[in-house]
Design a binder for these strands. Structure first.
Lengths: 222, 222
DNA sequence: ACAAGAGTGTAACAACTGTTACACTTTAAT
DNA sequence: ATTAAAGTGTAACAGTTGTTACACTCTTGT
C-alpha cells in the first residue's frame, strides 16, 4: 500500500510525527478499499468515525426525495469526508459518497479524534480551520443556488473560476456534472451555454473555457 | 443591563462559573448595543472576533450580486453569530446581519476563544457540536434550495415543520420572509400557496398551517 | 379612532426552464 | 480496430416562475 502523505492533509499536516507507521498503528483505525463507482457512504448513514480519504478521489451528492441529484463536490485524497458531522447532534451523513476510482478509506473512531484534539493544539486548530473552510464552501454553494437563472449561475461560476485575465481556464466537470452542480437540467444548461457562445460572451473548447466579454458576463448576474 | 443567561447558550452552557460577572470581566470583550433594523454586520466584513448575541434577535441574509435576497435564518439570543468563520482561512462574514429588535452583541477576541478551547474541554466540545449543527443546518438549506418547484419546496418545508399528526402548527415567518427563505418571488409563492389551499392539500389561517392531505403534499415532492 | 405602513390576494404577460426525443461525436474497453 | 458507452448539440412544446401592477386587509402607533 502506498504510504499516506500526511503532510498534504489539511487536518493532519501539523502533526509532528517521527514515524508515521507507528502513529497509524497507534490509532485504533480500520482501513477499507473500494472500487470505482462503489457507493462508499449512503445519505443518512451513521457518522461515528472520522472517514479519512487516504487514496483516490470521490464525489459527494445529495439525492432529494424526488430523485433529483445535487452534486456537492469532488474530493481528492488526502482529506477527511464530512468531518463536521462527527460532532453534530444528529450525526448522520448528509450525502452519498461514490468512488471515482480505486479508493482507500481510513476510519478513525470519534474518541481518537477527541483525544488528538485535546492533546495537540495544532491538530485542533487545523481541524477547526478545515471545518470552517467547509462551511465557507457550503455558503458559496448556497449563494450559487440562490441565483435564479442558469446564465446567472454560469456567470457567477465562471467569474469565480477564471483568473480574471481573459486567459483560458479548465473546468474539470463535464456538462452533466455541471448541471448537477447547479441543480438544473442538462439540456437547459447546454442551451444556456450555446447561447452565451453565440453571443460572443465566452468560448468553449472541451473543458477549456475562455471569457471573451467580461462585462457582458457580469451583466448576466443582474 | 439584563444578566446574560449563559446556561442557555449552546456554546457556553458547559462553562462552570461561580461568578459570571468575574468571568465576563476576565474576558477582554467589548459590548455594543443596536436598535431595531440596524445593520449589525455587513456581508464581507472581517470576522476576527466571536460575535455573541446576548440580547434580542437578528436575521441573517445573503445579498447576491443582482440584489436578490436569500434569507438564511432568524437567531435569538443567546447564540454566537457565524462562529465557524472565525477560523476560516478567508475570515469574512458571508451574510448581512440585521437587528429585529433592541440587540446587544458581545465581541470576544479570537485569541480568547482559542484560550478557552484549550483550557476547557467541555467548551471545546460544545463549540464543535454547535458548529457541526450549523453545518447540518446549511446542508438542509442546500437541500431545500435544490428542489426545483415552489410547491416542492413548500411540501418539504411544511412536512419538516409539522408534527406529522395533522394538527395545526405555526410558521413564524410572513409570506415575504418565506419567499426570501426559499429564494423565490413573493407573488409566485402566494400563487403556489393559494393553489395548494384550493386543492385542499393545506389550510392556512394567518401563520397557522394545517396539512389536510399529507399524501397529496408528499406527491408534490416528485 | 385614524392614518400610515406592512402584509396579502390576484391577474396578465413575458421569460425561463424542464421534458422528451433523437442525431451526432468523443472516449474507453475489448 | 471495433464496438459500446458516455457525452454533447439541438429542437418543440408544456409547464413554472418572475415581473409589474393594483386593490384590499390587517396591524401599529399616535
Amino acid at each position: 500500500m502506498k504510504k499516506v502523505d500526511l503532510a498534504a492533509c489539511p487536518v493532519c499536516s501539523k502533526l509532528e510525527i517521527d514515524d508515521e507507521g507507528a502513529f497509524l498503528d497507534d490509532l485504533k483505525c480500520t482501513i477499507k478499499v473500494y472500487s470505482k463507482n462503489d457507493l462508499i457512504i449512503r445519505q443518512g448513514d451513521l457518522c461515528d468515525a472520522l472517514h479519512m480519504l487516504t487514496q483516490g478521489s470521490v464525489k459527494t451528492e445529495m439525492i432529494a426525495e424526488n430523485g433529483n441529484i445535487l452534486g456537492i463536490e469532488i474530493i481528492k485524497a488526502p482529506r477527511p469526508l464530512a468531518p463536521a458531522f462527527l460532532f453534530s447532534d444528529n450525526n448522520h451523513f448528509p450525502v452519498d459518497v461514490t468512488a471515482l476510482e480505486e479508493v482507500e478509506i481510513m476510519k478513525i473512531p470519534k474518541a481518537e479524534i477527541m483525544r488528538l484534539m485535546m492533546t495537540n493544539s495544532d491538530f485542533m486548530s487545523s481541524f477547526m480551520t478545515h471545518n470552517a473552510n467547509r462551511t465557507q464552501f457550503l455558503t458559496n454553494r448556497l449563494q450559487l443556488l440562490s441565483i435564479k437563472t442558469i446564465k446567472g449561475k454560469l456567470a457567477h461560476f465562471l467569474l469565480e473560476n477564471s483568473y480574471g485575465d481573459g486567459k483560458p481556464f479548465i473546468i474539470n466537470r463535464n456538462q452533466t456534472q455541471l448541471a448537477e452542480f447547479f441543480g438544473v437540467a442538462r439540456p437547459s444548461l447546454a442551451r444556456s451555454l450555446s447561447e452565451m457562445v453565440q453571443d460572443g460572451i465566452i468560448s468553449i473548447n472541451k473543458k477549456e473555457y475562455t471569457i471573451l466579454n467580461p462585462k457582458g458576463l457580469r451583466e448576466l448576474l443582474v
